[in-house]
Design a binder for these strands. Structure first.
Lengths: 255, 255
DNA sequence: CGCATATTTGATAGATTTCAATTTATGTGG
DNA sequence: CCACATAAATTGAAATCTATCAAATATGCG
């Protein structure tokens, strides 16, 4: 199942170059990483708590949640990951998992062996920098989740989450948005620190504002209205910063 | 004010080697970084939102909070940093600040120019790995804050925060703990997503369990009792993993 | 002492949870 | 394609937790 076909990793490279500037040589080195593709079922943990992992996971398809829980077993989703994300890229330097990773929909995962990733990072400092930076963006998203859960009411929390996901999916256009989100209301509750019952009520309130969530499809009639309710400022997603505007560990050759 | 006296950076090196295995050469390279020492007053922002920073900050003394806020200006502390921490090491690869950094007590900060830090990381992959890893531990702490704020009641949130800080300060011994924490109850409220009034009441409840917080000193009579209330599992702090048990980007010379 | 900041306390309002029941969707085998 | 079983979403009523408002008390400091 191991693959030497570099095309499999093109989406992985796309994600890296979206945020970091890489030379042709570096790009080819990334594409030549060995990768193993696995299928994960809905509700299946593919990384368990406390586990020592030996490869990083890249999401080729599907939705993945990072799950933590309190002592009574109530779950808290601390991150959502969409195709193109590496939910545990950090495991390359910190191999003990302190959260579980679970698929929220059937998912296709590419597993990249730590050994190979580390070798790549060692040989190409700019690639190591790209990895590091990717982890940092995840951490910035995480910080906003703390704000969301700590300082917003139920409706705003859900609105903010929907805005974030719409933006990450690139689904916003013409003051409107529509996208797939394979989550149940119970999942939404776990992500926002609420009860499923209250999520249902809050969604009802959002519905009156032209925001619907049926059959895993989110429709946002008036984007700016929802942005207001969710107090959403996309800055933290770092999506508007061009890779060539960033520093590089090593200066790139003149272009 | 720039310093070439390497002893100034010894605490910085100590922090790195606590979590990462570095060779003599690498250690000396770290110590030879240029650093500028600044004093920051209580309640002073030394990194402001949206700012493009040109150096990373190392806390030599004092307590620092990472502040975010919602649309109504209610503040949320998303991280607390103690001496030995680098609250914005991540800025080395992501220079736009998405949170403010504010001193909660008078603080001494060492500023390390990005240029020099990047040069160091480029020349020594294992040092780059140490930096990356340090950011990851911060992110793991952040994830636990989401759980704390999202899935625990007021008393448990505060208990958990006190447990975390006691552990990070290394203040736990003999089933008891005592340490300095230069925060007001309003700060505690900002960290836990609560109201100052409710923090006061919750502290009252903890007081009945032998936990006091007066004049910036936290006293925990029965450590295990508080651990229970706060549902505290120190695993995520990664404090018990020895640096030599971790991988290195480059294999160290035989020892 | 007197001002400014921090903490405590009480009473009340509001938000969210809990519990329980019902309805609606979804999937599966016959 | 229906019938059934299961999962997901909705609704109502009551309980609980947390916020809000306002006032009182304590604490630190010049």
């Amino acid at each position: 199942m191991s693959s030497t076909n570099s095309r499999v990793l093109q989406p992985f490279l796309d994600r890296l170059t979206k945020r970091s500037d890489l030379t042709r040589t570096e790009q080819e080195a990334v594409l030549s990483l060995p990768a193993r593709e696995i299928q994960v079922e809905r509700n299946e943990d593919f990384v368990r708590l406390g586990e020592i992992v030996v490869h990083a996971n890249f999401i080729a398809a599907g939705l993945v949640g990072r799950f933590d829980q309190n002592a009574s077993g109530e779950r808290q989703i601390t991150a959502l990951h969409i195709p193109g994300d590496m939910p545990d890229l950090f495991s390359v330097v910190q191999k003990t998992a302190t959260s579980a990773l679970q698929a929220l929909s059937p998912a296709t995962i590419l597993q990249l062996p730590h050994r190979a990733v580390r070798e790549l990072a060692r040989a190409h400092p700019a690639v190591a920098e790209a990895f590091w930076r990717d982890c940092i963006v995840d951490a910035m998203i995480l910080a906003q989740w703390v704000v969301n859960v700590g300082r917003r009411n139920a409706r705003s929390r859900i609105a903010h989450l929907l805005c974030e996901m719409a933006t990450r999916f690139g689904a916003v256009a013409d003051g409107t948005a529509e996208f797939h989100l394979t989550m149940t209301q119970a999942h939404l509750a776990d992500a926002t620190g609420l009860t499923p019952v209250h999520v249902s009520r809050s969604l009802g309130s959002l519905r009156e504002m032209g925001v619907t969530f049926h059959k895993n499809v989110v429709c946002i009639a008036d984007w700016h209205l929802l942005v207001g309710v969710g107090e959403f400022d996309p800055n933290y997603l770092q999506e508007d910063i061009k890779p060539e505007e960033r520093d590089r560990m090593v200066q790139p050759p003149a272009r």
